[in-house]
Write a protein that binds this DNA or RNA. Structure first.
Lengths: 201, 201
DNA sequence: GCAGCTTCTTGCACTCACTGCAAACTATTA
DNA sequence: TAATAGTTTGCAGTGAGTGCAAGAAGCTGC
């Protein structure tokens, strides 16, 4: 892991990580709604005010969101081979993130935690929505479609839905790995969720 | 409109409506982030504490969420003819809600407001998630599928995604009516969002 | 019409999230 | 080592949201 820059940079990264760690640990221990920012800050040995210099919301710290993920996703999207179908690109993007989270060994626990707490889910959605907008824009450009067209937006958004469904189902059936559930969802989306659809038959 | 029950009942409905109205009006006027509960309560001529007796979150009042919608949706889902395909049922459910919102004459303004405010969008999603769970359960039962299966959950969730995409697109292109955008999304979901999908080709 | 019950409203005190500001502190750079 | 630029912190303040207990108001039986 590249420890670039001077002491200052390193300290910032350290503090950020310490806050995220403490936040996740405490949230797992006491339930996300019963952790206060004060506790998190104390556990990370900084002041409350400093906490807010790093994370604007309590939930951000617990989610420990890595901005790098979005960056990589956008990059992957832009550099995808021309013949790769859009949902396939999304699939790679999603699995890339999953790989990262898994290697941190917290995919499952964190996923469960997220799905169990409205506030967390909500914050995750917040960032998802922002991400979705950017991913949609990137995908639309890649497909050469106008900004207002439905398909790219729907592909991104439906892929997000598939991920959320996968997490939710994994929570109730932990024996089915998330990847498998995600793949199933993507497969369904790809081929059509309901070929018999026809409200005006 | 049936004014059931005694004075008490009516007053409660009145207060609830007054709060929702004031909340929406003020949110449209000053932007949702610059309205305080105090103002809303004052405009509705009740105390702040009373506000919270009706809505547990400020955003709920602005969304003015009608619990009746979910009820009707579940009812529609349960009583759907056996041969109606699942996404078609969702379509009717969605259009039923749209009709209601339209008749209140606020679909567009409220939709725009919601899409423009993270806090509102999150609250909407939160309630959506709750709704989605119930709708998913109902749909799974109707399809005779086990609770943990992917398809019903994905159908409900993807339909929600289509609605959100429709609102988002409508915001940037107000000339395209929401219904039309919703239909386009449903059509795509039904037939398959990406027939060429195949990460393991 | 009133006593007694239930339900709704309100004020109050409190916790907690979050923000702006200015002072103190610390790495960096010349 | 002195100037500078970035970081941390305390403090004061706003606003959301909750629990509690007292009072107001609708309801019910007489």
């Amino acid at each position: 892991m590249g420890a670039e820059g001077g002491l200052r940079e390193r300290k910032k990264l350290q503090t950020r990580a310490a806050l995220a760690d403490a936040a996740l640990r405490l949230a797992l221990e006491k339930g996300p709604d019963h952790v206060t920012v004060e506790e998190i800050a104390e556990a990370a040995d900084v002041s409350v005010r400093t906490f807010f210099n790093y994370y604007s919301h309590k939930e951000h710290a617990i989610l420990g969101r890595n901005p790098e993920h979005l960056e990589r996703a956008l990059e992957r999207m832009r550099s995808a081979p021309a013949e790769e179908s859009p949902l396939t690109t999304m699939w790679f993007v999603v699995h890339d993130v999953l790989r990262d989270l898994e290697s941190e060994g917290e995919l499952s626990r964190r996923g469960e935690l997220i799905m169990s707490s409205p506030a967390l889910l909500y914050q995750l959605m917040l960032s998802s929505i922002d991400d979705e907008r950017q991913l949609t824009a990137a995908l639309a450009e890649r497909l050469g479609e106008p900004v207002g067209s439905t398909r790219p937006a729907l592909i991104v958004s439906a892929a997000g839905a598939a991920c959320r469904v996968a997490m939710e189902l994994h929570k109730t059936a932990p024996d089915r790995p998330i990847r498998e559930l995600v793949d199933e969802g993507f497969q369904l989306l790809a081929q059509g969720i309901d070929p018999a659809f026809g409200p005006n038959n």
